Amino acid sequence: MQLMKPLWRRISSQLVVSFRSQSRASSTISDPGSSTRTLVSNAEGDWPPRVLITGGLGQLGSNLAKELRKRYGVNNVVLSDIMKPTQKILANGPYAYADVLDVKHLHSLVVNYNIDWVVHFSALLSAIGEKDVTRALKVNIEGYHNIVEVCKSHNLRLFCPSTIGAFGPSSPRNPTPDVTIQRPRTIYGVSKVHVELLGEYYYYKYGVDFRSLRFPGVLSAGAPGGGTTDYAVHIFHDVIRTGEYKCFLREDTRLPMIYLPDCTKATIMALEAHPSVFHPEMRTYNIQGISFTPAELVEEMRKYFPNMKVTYEPDERQAIADTWPEVLDDTNARADWNWSHDYDLPKMVKEIVEKLSKST
């Protein structure tokens, strides 16, 4: 019996075919930056690609899906997660349940949705992972094993981010180069070193088109997650709501950060870049946005909240932060595929304040 296509795909099949036919006429499109870039198409030679995003209901996945749908068409980007989506998420484009621990189901998603590229965001972050190491091992390592095997089986391009947490206390901290000693002290960091090395192995051994970026702390106006750098998100929400914030890091703790639009831009640039632009010995690149301390962030925020009150009470997350880079050296990303960030600290703070002020 013939497998029935998903409802959204049957309804829009003519639109998708038309969009693909028009898009294949050119192999050069604008990248998220200011330049244009020659792109490589998917394994079948079609453009645009069909993309599956795992762990898609977090801030990274939802924002990336929004931007990719503008570029490739709404129905060519499938958002997935293990949680029930809101009606707004469902209205924005195709959504599928995807448990990264169920490899057979992952295979079926790739086949049924005709996927070309996978963006793998499913992971437990640093602070959460330390509280549940067993679950972090399953999601971050076993889940990644399943994803990379699926990509190998179906000849898919794979983007999976790494993190500043992949470095450790013996790594140089300012600046931290792309290639250096990595001995992280968190299960999140250990799992991301595993992602980097296994991805490279599958690239050299099996030809899997693996790409990765080491993300700094990713900041936005959205709800904070479970990361050590999320103090820089919590502070906006608490100060707007109460005028006060208790910071769980020391005021002089410098960490690399990136604003969400810049993070999305970097992801798209790395995802779309022609294989020839990558360094022959490098599948994982640092990307740097801005580096600042809690005290420097507070100073900038006082332009908008002059009476805000901040106290510092470091907790167990301080020990994690003390092992991480202060500044990432992203010279190679800027040289190889023209990466550049758009937001400095004043511009980011201004935009977050404006967004949160409108929503309150």
Rank of each mutant, 00 (worst) to 15 (best):
N338A: 14
E272L: 05
L64F: 09
D330R: 13
E281Q: 10
F215N: 09
A333D: 10
L79Q: 05
D209I: 07
L101G: 13
E142A: 13
H274L: 00
L68C: 09
L60I: 12
A232Y: 02
T267A: 10
D99N: 11
P177A: 02
V208C: 04
M301P: 04
G207K: 07
A273V: 00
K84W: 06
S23N: 01
L137M: 10
I164D: 00
A273I: 01
V78D: 04
K70S: 02
K131F: 08
T284Q: 01
F19C: 00
D99A: 05
A321E: 04
A266Y: 14
I235Y: 02
A123Q: 07
L109H: 15
H341C: 12
K265Y: 14
L15M: 12
D252T: 14
R250M: 08
P261L: 15
S153C: 07
R241T: 11
L345G: 04
V218Y: 02
M308G: 00
R157T: 01
G143C: 12
G226E: 01
P6G: 15
L7I: 15
I287G: 15
I115R: 11
P184S: 13
V310C: 07
W337H: 08
P184N: 13
P48L: 11
E299H: 07
A295T: 15
T180S: 06
V239S: 05
L68G: 07
F248N: 13
A321D: 03
D102K: 11
V74K: 10
N338D: 12
S62E: 03
D102L: 08
S357V: 00
P177R: 03
A319N: 10
T180C: 12
E296V: 14
E142D: 12
Q59M: 11
A333H: 12
M4C: 09
D31H: 00
K347I: 02
L198A: 05
G33C: 11
F248E: 11
H274F: 00
A221K: 10
I352M: 08
D336A: 06
G225E: 14
T293Q: 04
R71N: 01
